[in-house]
Design a protein around this nucleic acid. Structure first.
Lengths: 118, 118
DNA sequence: GCTATGAGTTACCTAAAGGATAGCGACTAT
DNA sequence: ATAGTCGCTATCCTTTAGGTAACTCATAGC
C-alpha cells in the first residue's frame, strides 16, 4: 500500500484515518461479506462462498483474514465431522454501521442523480 | 469494473449503491482532491498537483475527469495568457460530506483500536 | 529563433487485485 | 478401497491502478 501525501491542513491524522477506513472497506468483497454476516449472524466458510456468489476460496480466505486482523470478525473452528469454521461479526463491527449507512444513502442519491436508475 | 453479486436480501439496490459509493471514493487520490477543493474553494490544475504531493498529471487528469463525470466538480477553462483551468466543487458535492465524516470517525476509532496510534 | 508556461496526453512499466483450476489433509460414509 | 465433505493452499494467469518520463499545443516573453 502506498503513502498518502495530502496537503489539507486540518489534521494529517484525519487523512490517515480516511485512508485506513477506505482501505479496510474497499475491494470487491469486504462489504458483501460484512453485510451477509450482519444479516445471518454466523456463517461457515462454505456458506459465505454460497452467499457471495462469484467469490473464490482463495480470495475469500484472504478477505476473512484481513477482516479478522482488523477485529471486525471472529473465526471459530468447530468440532464437527469434517471440520467446519464459523465466522461472525464482533461487537466492534457495529462501528462500521454508520459508515456503511452513509455510503448506502449517498450511493442511492447518486444512482438517482447520475444514472436515473434505482 | 466487475459486477458485484451479493446475496443479502434487503435490497439489491442497496448493494449496488454501496458499490457505486465505494468505487467513486476509492483510489489513492479522490478524497484528497475533494478535501483540497473543499478547503480552498477553487484550484487550478497546477495547484492540485502542488497540494496533492506525489500525484502525476496523468493520474490527476483521470481522477478529475471521473469526478466531473460524477458531477462532484466543475471544470472551467479560463481566458488567460497560458490557458489555465479551474476546478471547484459542485453544490451536489456536499452530499459526500456525511460519508467522508463517517469514514473519518470510524478511521480514527479504528486507528486507536488497532494501531494504538493517533 | 529560443525558451518557458499550463494543461494536459502518450507510451511504457511495475505491483497488486483478483479469477481459474487443482490439490491437500483430516475425516466419514459406502 | 473409493469417493465425498470442508476449509483451505498453491500455481498460474489476466486485469487494473498507478508511477515515470517524455512529448504536444497554444501562447508569450526575451
Amino acid at each position: 500500500m502506498e503513502e498518502l501525501k495530502c496537503e489539507s491542513r486540518p489534521g494529517i491524522n484525519k487523512q490517515l484515518a480516511l485512508k485506513d477506513a477506505l482501505e479496510l472497506l474497499s475491494g470487491k468483497w469486504k462489504v458483501c461479506i460484512l453485510t451477509n454476516l450482519y444479516h445471518n449472524g454466523t456463517l461457515r466458510f462454505k456458506d459465505i462462498i454460497a452467499s457471495s456468489r462469484g467469490i473464490t476460496p482463495k480470495v475469500l480466505s484472504k478477505e476473512l483474514q484481513q477482516l479478522e486482523e482488523n477485529l471486525l470478525i471472529t473465526r471459530t473452528v468447530n468440532n464437527t465431522k469434517p471440520v467446519t469454521v464459523s465466522y461472525a461479526l464482533t461487537p466492534y463491527a457495529t462501528e462500521t454501521q454508520p459508515v456503511i449507512k452513509a455510503l448506502i444513502e449517498f450511493g442511492l442519491k447518486h444512482r438517482m442523480k447520475i444514472k436515473s436508475i434505482i
